[in-house]
Design a protein around this nucleic acid. Structure first.
Lengths: 123, 123
DNA sequence: CAGTATCCACGTCGATACTG
DNA sequence: CAGTATCGACGTGGATACTG
């Protein structure tokens, strides 16, 4: 078969899936879907995200055409990150994922506790 | 604030998001949503996935209550992995993501090429 | 403010070998 | 068949320091 097949490592779809199946992408696009934000704003907005990784992630998001980066020659310099139309369609697809996580976390934590208890009992 | 907030690293939602924002989860649940499968079947089904990582991933999927693991005392032993109802709701949320990747890969590859060309020109 | 550069600790992954 | 155990290579990420 020649149709896109995410299960085949050679398929470009897989590269893209690898790319978007990344927690920072989900969170950053989620923020930028709300409004345009500046670098340190994003940094503060996502807890636990280091400056280095934020920088890397934004660069690849820009490369993929999901966000734009605008530099304003103020002093000090102002940089604004905005989501693109393409990025917005992805953010829309990602949103249900975050909602799923939020609404099912209790069930999953329970499942984990049960599993760990069974493991404990078996050992 | 005490409501679920995926942007806060301390929130359990974040752990779950980290967990499901994983490429193997997406692909494995996608396969198991179709039908119950055996270990080596899954291994063959997902290109580039090593035995070790498959084993780890399945274990954590089981721990989270997303798949079940059934052992049949045949010779040699038969192990079947099946998606749970919970897993099915997640798979359903994940499906649009794969479709998005498949339908937008051309645009993204173009964006990457453009970006790289601009970088090249700037350097 | 918005990064880049460097170093290093860490974990993860693939390859290989072995088991019930 | 369905794993586990071990090892070594590798890359990613955090901390820190510096720059326009």
């Amino acid at each position: 078969m020649n149709s896109p097949d995410a299960f085949n490592a050679l398929c470009p779809t897989r590269q893209i899936l690898d790319r978007i199946a990344d927690k920072w992408t989900v969170l950053l696009l989620g923020l930028l879907a709300g409004r345009t934000m500046r670098f340190n704003e994003l940094r503060r907005g996502v807890d636990g995200l280091s400056q280095k990784v934020l920088s890397q992630t934004l660069k690849s998001l820009e490369r993929d055409g999901l966000v734009t980066r605008a530099v304003y020659p103020t002093v000090p310099v102002t940089v604004e990150y905005a989501i693109t139309d393409l990025g917005r369609t992805l953010a829309a697809t990602l949103e249900p994922l975050r909602l799923w996580a939020e609404s099912h976390m209790n069930v999953i934590e329970q499942a984990r506790a049960d599993f760990d208890r069974r493991q404990q009992a078996a050992a």
